[in-house]
Nucleic acid binder design. Structure first.
Lengths: 223, 223
DNA sequence: CTGTCTGGTGAAAGACTATTTAAAAGAAAA
DNA sequence: TTTTCTTTTAAATAGTCTTTCACCAGACAG
C-alpha cells in the first residue's frame, strides 16, 4: 500500500481528501504545517507527498526542497488557482506535478497514480531509525548526509535489515558475511565490524539504539 | 531540440501555441486531425505529443493508444474544462499528463518540460552530465563534438544508461557485456574498459563525475 | 570478592581492490 | 599481406579495507 503525506492546513480539505484517498487504497498521513511535515519526512518514508503551497507557517517550497534534497519522493503541489508563480517555482524545485484548487478528487487520484507510475514506484529505500538505506544505489545516509560504509559494513547492515527484529547469533552473521565454507575468520572480526558500523550509523555508538547486543545470543535490530 | 507534435483542430490554438512553443525552443509540427496525426507519427519520431481530445474526425484516444502501443512517446492531453470523463480515459490509455482548456501557455510549457524530465528525455537522446547519447544513431557526443567509442565502450555506456543510479557489480557488468555463460574474461578487462570509457567521457578522468566507483560493490552512474 | 567469560576498543600489518601502464593477441580494413 | 584499431592479458602501484592481536570493561557464577 502506497503511503501518502498530505501537507495542508485547511481542515476541510484534510478531512475530505484523507477519506477519499483512503477509500482509493492509499495510506494517508497529515501534516498541518511546514514544521510537522519536515518532522514526519524525517521519521517515515513516503511514496508521495501532496503539498499545499500556501501554508500558515511558510510556503511549501522549503518542504519541497527538503524532500528533493534527501529522498527523491515524488511531490505534487496543490495551489490556489491562477497562482502562476507557484507553478513555475514548484516545477523548478523539482515538483513532479501540480494541481490547482479547486480540483476534483478523482483527478487528483489519477495524477497520483500517474506520477507513481512515471517515477517507477521507487521502493528500494528502507529505513532504520534515522538511517536510510538504498539497496539499488548501494548507499546509506543519515539526516541527509551520506554515510561512507565499506563493502563489509554495508553487507552487515543489509543482513540486519533483512532480519529485522530477529536475534542473529555471531555464527549466523559470520556465515552470512564470510560465507566461504570451512574458512575461518577470527570471531572478533565480527565484533570489530559491529563497532565500526555502530560508529557510523548510531547517534551515540556507546549506547546503540539500532544494533543492540543480546548478551550470550548475538545482536539484533529491532525498530 | 525537442520535437513536439500538436494534434489540434482549432486553428487559433494551433497558431498561438505553435508560435509560443517555437519561441520556447521546441520544434513543432501540427496535425489537424486523427488521420494526419497517425500519418505523421508513422513517419517521424517525436519527443512529445500534445493531443486534443475532441477532434473533428474522432476523439484523440485512438491516437493515444496508437502512440503508446508503438513508441512510448509521452502524451499530454488537452481537454475542454470540466470534461472529467476525458481525464479518466486519457490517463488509463497511458497519457502522461493532462491540461484543461483554457490554459496558460506558460503552464503548458512547464508541464511539457516536466514530463520530458520524468520520462527521461524519452526520445532517443539521453543526457549524462555533458555527454549526449543517441541510442538510435548509436553515437555519443560531448560539448557538441563526437566521441569515438568502440563497440564495447558503447555497450558499457548503455548498460550504465539503462541502470542510472543503480550500483552495478563487476559481475553484473561482465554478464551484461560478456554475456556468454561460463566463458571467462579476465576480470580486469572490465576495469580497463571503465578506464577507457572514463577517459573519453569524463572531464577529469582521475576524478570521475559520471561513472563512480563504489568500492567493494561495483560502479554506478548517478546523475 | 575473585576469576572467567563475553563483548568492546585501538592500533598496526598485510591483503585486497581498483587504477594505471604497457604490450600481446585478435579482427577488420586497406 | 600489411596496417590499423580493438580487445584481452599481464604486471606494477597506490591506497584503503580487512583481519588480527593485545588489551580493557563489565557481567555473571562460584
Amino acid at each position: 500500500m502506497k503511503k501518502i503525506l498530505l501537507v495542508e492546513d485547511d481542515k476541510s480539505i484534510i478531512t475530505n481528501l484523507s477519506e477519499f484517498l483512503t477509500n482509493e487504497g492509499f495510506s494517508v498521513r497529515n501534516a498541518e504545517g511546514q514544521t510537522r511535515a519536515l518532522e514526519l519526512i524525517g521519521e517515515e518514508e513516503f511514496d508521495l507527498v501532496l503539498l499545499d503551497v500556501s501554508l500558515a507557517d511558510g510556503n511549501g517550497f522549503a518542504v519541497c526542497s527538503a524532500i528533493k534534497s534527501e529522498h527523491n519522493t515524488p511531490v505534487i503541489f496543490l495551489t490556489a488557482s491562477g497562482d502562476e508563480y507557484s507553478t513555475v517555482t514548484g516545477f523548478e524545485l523539482g515538483a513532479d506535478d501540480y494541481i490547482s484548487k479547486p480540483f476534483r478528487p478523482r483527478e487528483l487520484v489519477l495524477r497520483i497514480k500517474n506520477i507513481l507510475r512515471l517515477t517507477g514506484g521507487s521502493g528500494t529505500v528502507t529505513k532504520l531509525g534515522d538511517v536510510l538505506v538504498d539497496t539499488v544505489k548501494g548507499t546509506a545516509s543519515r539526516n541527509g548526509s551520506d554515510l561512507y560504509l565499506s563493502a563489509l559494513e554495508y553487507r552487515l547492515l543489509l543482513v540486519f535489515l533483512n532480519n529485522r527484529g530477529a536475534v542473529l547469533s555471531r555464527n549466523q552473521l559470520l556465515e552470512a558475511i564470510w560465507d566461504i565454507a570451512g574458512e575461518f575468520v577470527n570471531d572478533n572480526t565480527l565484533t570489530v565490524y559491529i563497532k565500526r558500523l555502530r560508529e557510523k550509523i548510531e547517534e551515540d555508538p556507546q549506547n546503540p539504539k539500532i544494533i543492540k547486543t543480546v548478551r550470550g545470543l548475538g545482536y539484533k535490530v529491532d525498530l
